[in-house]
Design a binder for these strands. Structure first.
Length: 472
DNA sequence: TGAAATGTTGGGGCG
DNA sequence: ACGCCCCAACATTTC
């Protein structure tokens, strides 16, 4: 048999069900198709493209240079390859974005008509979204019952698969080079990212190893402190499938509170995919319809300050600079800056979502949209509207020494807590001594935290009553 | 996976 | 020794 294995968001060799299965049946042509420019596709952000480039490069090297690249409509690409290489079977691992599900089933249908055997596998989720329902047959909408009564009471995630002994790869002459995919031309400042990340399958395993050795034992208590090394930083690796969640799940199975808490976080990832599968409008529409009536502010200047990390509120700005500088943001900081954008600035969560989409290496349709719906309060199991983070209080609690702020805001490096958390409250002489001149070297806050909170509470309260009136 | 306002309690200073 | 006040610390409620 001669088959194609189509790499998508499973850029790995280990524990790759589709690839291992393909290898059992004969010779395998490994390919990658850049397909997000097509109508209906959800175009990747620039950070994702940069990571993808390097991940593909790494994968290609571990395949001995035999990975073939293509651009365009997968059906047309396949038809070309099938003719040229005399292919009988096509293997891939499933993706779960609605546009991909639709497209993949179409591809399957067309190829089957042409006599090609198409087989798909699960390489990305611990539980398939269509295997978990409430007793009444409806999908879960709340995390805890989804996870406990749904996931954990189902069959445990499978063990990692044994490595394929030896894969006999085919080569083709009609593939393109990686560079023609043109994935990195929009990022000219990419080299700095390499200080923070080791991209590819080996890097993913290295991150896991470091986390198991140094982070996991302090995970539950330590994960909330953005300057401490207790998070796994596996999210971009997971997004691109450089490592499988099954392998991670099995590696974490210790049963103490840290293990359980980390597994719970993997559970949130499952929940995001589950929601996206059952409610495919998740990236576009408020899950709770009453939020459709909310009057978001158009504040282009505020939005610009937020993106650039120039809001004048150090904990927020440090996080936004972390995103720009490293292509990543600590989980707690995502909540802090999200709450600030949506609740203090009253800007629509789509603005935050699309900035994250463009800047995050782990930008993921399911996680990004469910995360933003959560923080905005319009999600299915979301933070209630009155839960508004105070970025000064959050800094006092989770960055007490100011280490995180200092790391990403060099202009405040000589200012110490507590004034570091709210420079506008600092006495003149403190600012002078630290070389800070508000309005010049660092901005005044663009909103008053207390007043904007009160405004938001009022606005969201109104939303609640008006929707009650209109829905009756 | 919140923060602020409000309520409660208990120890200590003091007449 | 007693009652009173103050206030910090903690608990509960509200948004």
């Amino acid at each position: 048999m001669r088959s194609v294995f189509w790499f998508r968001q499973d850029l790995r060799i280990q524990d790759n069900p589709g690839l291992i299965e393909a290898a059992k049946n004969g010779k395998v042509l490994p390919i990658y198709i850049l397909d997000d420019e097509n109508p209906g596709g959800y175009k990747m952000g620039n950070a994702s493209r940069w990571w993808l480039h390097h991940s593909l490069k790494s994968l290609s090297e571990s395949l001995g240079g035999k990975l073939a690249f293509f651009v365009g409509n997968p059906i047309e690409v396949f038809q070309k390859i099938i003719r040229s290489e005399n292919i009988q079977e096509i293997y891939w691992n499933r993706c779960y974005e609605p546009w991909r599900i639709q497209r993949d089933s179409k591809i399957k249908e067309v190829l089957k008509k042409e006599g090609i055997n198409v087989k798909s596998f699960n390489a990305s989720l611990l539980w398939e979204p269509w295997e978990i329902y409430k007793k009444d047959g409806n999908p879960f909408k709340v995390f805890t019952p989804f996870y406990k009564k749904g996931c954990l009471s189902c069959e445990s995630p499978r063990l990692p698969l044994l490595k394929a002994k030896e894969i006999c790869f085919l080569e083709t002459s009609i593939g393109l080079s990686l560079n023609t995919l043109d994935l990195i031309s929009n990022i000219h400042w990419g080299e700095k990212f390499k200080d923070y990340w080791k991209i590819g399958e080996e890097g993913a395993h290295q991150s896991l190893k470091i986390f198991l050795k140094k982070g996991l034992a302090f995970y539950k208590g330590g994960r909330d402190f953005p300057s401490r090394p207790y998070t796994s930083r596996l999210s971009p690796h997971l997004h691109f499938g450089e490592i499988s969640p099954h392998l991670i799940w099995q590696a974490i199975k210790g049963g103490n509170e840290n293990h359980l808490h980390f597994q719970n976080e993997l559970g949130w990832r499952e929940f995001s995919y589950y929601l996206l599968y059952h409610f495919p409008t998740l990236p576009n529409e408020n899950f709770q319809k009453k939020y459709d009536h909310f009057q978001w502010k158009k504040s282009p200047e505020h939005l610009r300050c937020w993106k650039k990390g120039k809001t004048g509120i150090p904990f927020v700005d440090a996080a936004m600079r972390e995103l720009w500088e490293t292509g990543y943001m600590h989980n707690r900081m995502r909540m802090v800056v999200g709450s600030f954008l949506v609740k203090n600035l009253l800007i629509h969560w789509h603005e935050g979502e699309s900035w994250f989409w463009d800047c995050l290496f782990d930008a993921d349709l399911a996680n990004n949209s469910s995360g933003w719906q959560w923080i905005a309060g319009c999600g299915s199991d979301a933070a209630p509207y009155f839960r508004i983070f105070n970025p000064v209080t959050q800094a006092e609690k989770f960055d007490p020494e100011g280490t995180y702020i200092h790391q990403f805001l060099p202009e405040l490096r000589n200012l110490s807590p507590p004034y570091l958390f709210a420079p506008w409250t600092a006495p003149k002489e403190f600012l002078e001594k630290a070389g800070v001149e508000l309005g010049k070297t660092y901005p005044f806050p663009i909103v008053d935290i207390k007043k904007s909170r009160e405004d938001a509470l009022l606005a969201f309260r109104n939303l609640k009553t008006s929707s009650n009136l209109t829905s009756g």
